[in-house]
């Protein structure tokens, strides 16, 4: 374009572009919020992943510990059960003896009645 006015408009406009570029390079404005948001979201996402991983890990630990406990308890309970049965027998023994004594008494009474 040969119009000197328009040429100057463009040239001085470019001069302002250079000034703007210089100021932007000096970091005239604070970090844009959309970048902060993206950082925040990625940080948030990493937190979510960490929480999810820890939940899965804890669940796995719980499962394995419960599973092994169940297996162990099945084998470990055998002597305990036996001890319980013995204890039960020992506890019931006096009752059993008394029952036997009563039965014996009744038998004796029956014999005496029959002999009369």
């Amino acid at each position: 374009m040969n119009d000197p006015l328009i040429n100057q408009l463009k040239r001085d406009g470019q001069e302002l572009d250079r000034l703007a570029e210089k100021r932007l390079a000096q970091g005239v404005y604070v970090k844009p919020p959309w970048e902060k948001q993206s950082e925040k979201s990625s940080l948030h996402r990493s937190w979510l992943w960490a929480v999810a991983a820890s939940v899965i890990f804890t669940a796995g630990l719980l499962y394995t510990s419960i599973h092994t406990n169940q297996r162990n308890s099945a084998t470990n309970l055998q002597p305990v059960n036996q001890a319980l049965i013995i204890m039960d027998e020992q506890m019931k023994m006096p009752l059993h003896n008394e029952q036997q004594a009563i039965i014996e008494d009744l038998k004796m009474l029956k014999d005496r009645f029959l002999s009369i």
Binding site: G13, L16, D17, A20, P32, E35, Q37, S38
Partner: peptide, 19 residues
Amino acid sequence: VTGCFSQLVARYQVRLYSY
């Protein structure tokens, strides 16, 4: 995709700022 918006900002910030 926030990175794309940053690219748009980089494209237009000088023009807008000089104005």
